[in-house]
Design a protein around this nucleic acid. Sequence first.
DNA 1: ACAATAATTGTAGAACAATTGAAATAACAT
DNA 2: ATGTTATTTCAATTGTTCTACAATTATTGT
Lengths: 119, 119
Amino acid sequence: MNKNSAITIFESLASPVRLEVYRLLIRKGTNGMVAGEIASTLEVPPTNLSFHLKALTHAGLINVEQEGRFQRYRANLPLMLDLIAYLTDECCGGKPETCGDFSAAAICPQCSDSPSGIS
Amino acid sequence: MNKNSAITIFESLASPVRLEVYRLLIRKGTNGMVAGEIASTLEVPPTNLSFHLKALTHAGLINVEQEGRFQRYRANLPLMLDLIAYLTDECCGGKPETCGDFSAAAICPQCSDSPSGIS
DNA sequence: ACAATAATTGTAGAACAATTGAAATAACAT
DNA sequence: ATGTTATTTCAATTGTTCTACAATTATTGT
């Protein structure tokens, strides 16, 4: 994970259509969905959906696999873990004792080690 | 957390300047930073930084507190937890047995309960 | 009161993203 | 082979966001 990848991911999820696509695919888990199903479920014209699927795929947030004339899309959830790790990389400057009320034990490695960090 | 809040958060972090501000403030933890410090650290003109700080504040990603003529900004890390919970809300349709190789145990509540989910 | 410092607001032009419809590509069925 | 279905690409239009400069507000120090 780096700055450019993170930006691309955030740009991808900053669109209502793409956010709904991503959340839908997370709900569908390993099965995923083919493009047409996504289009009819979310009531987005196929041509527009294709534009958004391309953006999500380019960001790595979803994967695509061909099935005959269908394209099956699946969410890439682990990428979200990388992104969170990138954001909280050097939380509290790596000094747990300064974390105090930062209140993000569940997300910040340093806060978890802090005396006031709730595990 | 709802769709509009999530969109606003993603839009906020989709800008290189704002992403760097947010990461910088996470590193600074509870101390935070005043606007001028952020501007000089990231080498962004104050007028432009102000524009981005407003967007981040509006999204709830950072908080601001007045200190005399300074404005001290701090990251709101817990909001990130809400966002992640929103994304993974109904992961795998709530059926752990279908999670399979979804490989997101650390982030998806259902996957964590699944036989193949790694805790 | 006056000047200096910290930060924000308003405005305008440039850059970028989203949507649409028409056309193209590719796979399948008859 | 031909027609049909699934999906993507292209081009044009519209709307939004970014940046910079000038002006403004608010606080502090003399």
